[in-house]
Write a protein that binds this DNA or RNA. Structure first.
Lengths: 207, 207
DNA sequence: GATTATAGACTGACGGTCGGTCGGTGAAAG
DNA sequence: CTTTCACCGACCGACCGTCAGTCTATAATC
């Protein structure tokens, strides 16, 4: 029985199913046949839309990055919140997330998903760091922050955050997890040369 | 033609060959058959020593970690160098390295080696951070360093270092690479609450 | 009728298994 | 002091199942 759908609709079906499978079973352990069975299509259909299994992963990563970037950019141009709140909102967007993206950074990064994690890390750091730099520039003007290497600091902060809070890489208990996060915020304060503990409160509110 | 060797000798032959192949071709692209051909053994022999291809990778990562840890521990107990020199030596050991380990962190981390990178990162951070904490404790006494989250700071520092300076993850030109390293050292200074630029000179000497 | 979407049988490569062989070792038998 | 023989574990390679990816045919759509 042959069902024909609009190009984008079918493509998204594949993408959504693949994402769910990768997230729950891991990339390596999810086979193309698994995807076919769930979407209820044949091999040829899959390869009509994507030229490889890895291309599906790349598309998923890109979609995720775009959603984070778009939220970060909306936050950037707001004029009703302070720069430090903008920083916090952007970090939160990368972690908490609603529904779809939600489990991405938390569930998707199992040990089997090293490649997916690496690709995501690369995309997020590359795309988000420059946005955060703009927030820092705003803070430098309005709040007299001082920051020697804005871009590099944000790269450091983001890569450490995404790596250390990844349950697939470091299996930390809740307490250790909180200590790492507190330390990350503390590092951020030092990076921006603001008084100790001036961000941690703000963070707790948005948690 | 059947050649019989001592258990450890054969095991190391497999390990060395696998490491070289993984490093040059990447883990995924190196097949078990490639290893067999180079070591000149049969399938059964390989699986007599290792129960899977991944177990070989784990053994390689462990061997690498052990070599780094052993050097770090030797550095730790020296009494002819300052704590800041100990920090630098340990970081250097993770990057420059002689011969065998040498190309590990530089060549081995191609995009195909995400899993290998992740496993190495995990091992190094888990094993080295506690040793660096001891160096910091020494510095806190002798040099009046001040450090609020020693372990977490070292975890942050190590994971950011190993991720950002990895050519397989972020392809940076020489200039960007240097800026990131300078920023990392700057962060380290802030973490230990020492004056700005007090470590950077030291680092340049050991580079 | 040309293009696009779908189908699914097929291929080749790869990781891993399995039944069995061969050489060395050590102890009992001669 | 040999010789025999049971046993161990290193070694072999044909074989198997799985999986990503290919190819050709065919149905729907414009």
């Amino acid at each position: 029985m042959r069902v024909i759908k609009a190009h984008d609709e079918r493509k998204n079906e594949i993408l959504n199913t693949a994402e769910r499978l990768f997230r729950t079973k891991g990339y390596e352990k999810s086979t193309v046949n698994d995807i076919l069975k769930e979407v209820d299509i044949a091999k040829g259909t899959f390869y009509h839309y994507f030229k490889s299994k890895e291309e599906v992963m790349d598309a998923i990563v890109l979609r995720y990055k775009d959603s984070i970037v778009s939220r970060a950019e909306k936050t950037l141009i707001r004029d009703d919140i302070s720069p430090e709140e903008k920083l916090m909102h952007t970090f939160m967007a990368m972690r908490i997330n609603d529904e779809v993206d939600g489990e991405m950074l938390n569930e998707l990064h199992k040990a089997e998903n090293a490649l997916l994690h690496q690709k995501t890390l690369n995309q997020i750091v590359t795309a988000i760091a420059p946005i955060l730099v703009k927030v820092i520039e705003e803070g430098t003007q309005k709040k007299a922050w001082r920051c020697k290497y804005p871009l590099q600091y944000m790269q450091i902060f983001l890569s450490a955050s995404l790596t250390l809070t990844d349950e697939g890489i470091f299996a930390l208990d809740a307490d250790s997890q909180m200590k790492v996060i507190a330390a990350l915020i503390s590092v951020l304060e030092k990076m921006l040369d603001v008084p100790e503990d001036s961000f941690i409160q703000l963070f707790m509110q948005h948690w």
